[in-house]
Design a protein around this nucleic acid. Structure first.
Lengths: 125, 125
DNA sequence: GCTTGACCTAGAGTGACTCCAATAGGCTAC
DNA sequence: GTAGCCTATTGGAGTCACTCTAGGTCAAGC
């Protein structure tokens, strides 16, 4: 499939996909006779993984490390897999913190909204 | 209090506070004889509110709108308060989406971690 | 044969900070 | 009283992660 469909399936924009390729975060993408990128199912899986890591706020440098390890010649060696696991575990902790933070802010926001609502009701009542 | 303490209390860096002031998101901050900013309790409350809105991802343009309304001459008019309430409500919806998204990504991440863990256990076992 | 449309590239622009260099006033230590 | 240090000040450059623009190729449709 071409970049348009790859974008739709992965949730990344075409620009972002090109940017990730340039940054070395993708296994080399095949090209057709015209020079257009041709994506296969594995590519889409990989793009989707990157999208999820980024959506949850993993910094690009860490995503790059993850990509390097996943595309290393010995990528199936226990050592490389342990490296990727460590990155994911570290990220899971960050994500949990972020979720707690958002939850706290949500309470703050709900509280503010409550204040505005009652004050406006009083005005109109 | 000075910018150092304002930063510690609000959770914003000194640079960010200066940046917000320059961008017109703060009521004019008093200065002492040396030209240093002097913050009072209201300033800190306001900074904290901004911090929370930004932490939850409200774009600066919306925060600016919120600030404009809060510092408008008729800021206590029902009209202005309704404007701010609308901004907060819109943002609450965005935040709820974001939380759902993070939750979905968390499952993805936990699943991946599970796969890596079992594969490494097998290797070592 | 000409337009349209999906793609290509390099490079500039954006949002929201974040860091840096140069400057200045005030406190303590000699 | 002056040297060093601390906390500020400013304008402007740098960073991250895209996002957009300009200009170009090529196959297909009218």
């Amino acid at each position: 499939m071409r970049i348009n469909e790859a974008s739709a399936r992965s949730g990344l924009t075409q620009d972002t996909i090109r940017f990730y390729e340039k940054s070395g975060m993708l296994a080399p993408i095949r090209r057709d006779a015209r020079g257009w990128r041709v994506f296969n199912a594995d590519d889409i899986n990989w793009l989707t993984t990157l999208e999820r890591l980024r959506t949850t706020g993993m910094p690009l440098d860490d995503v790059k490390r993850f990509a390097m390890s996943a595309h290393a010649p010995n990528r199936d060696a226990a050592e490389e897999r342990a490296k990727r696991l460590a990155l994911l575990e570290k990220h899971a902790v960050t994500l949990a913190h972020r979720q707690a933070e958002l939850e706290a802010c949500k309470h703050f926001l709900d509280h503010k909204i409550g204040i505005y609502r009652t004050s406006l009701e009083v005005t109109h009542g």
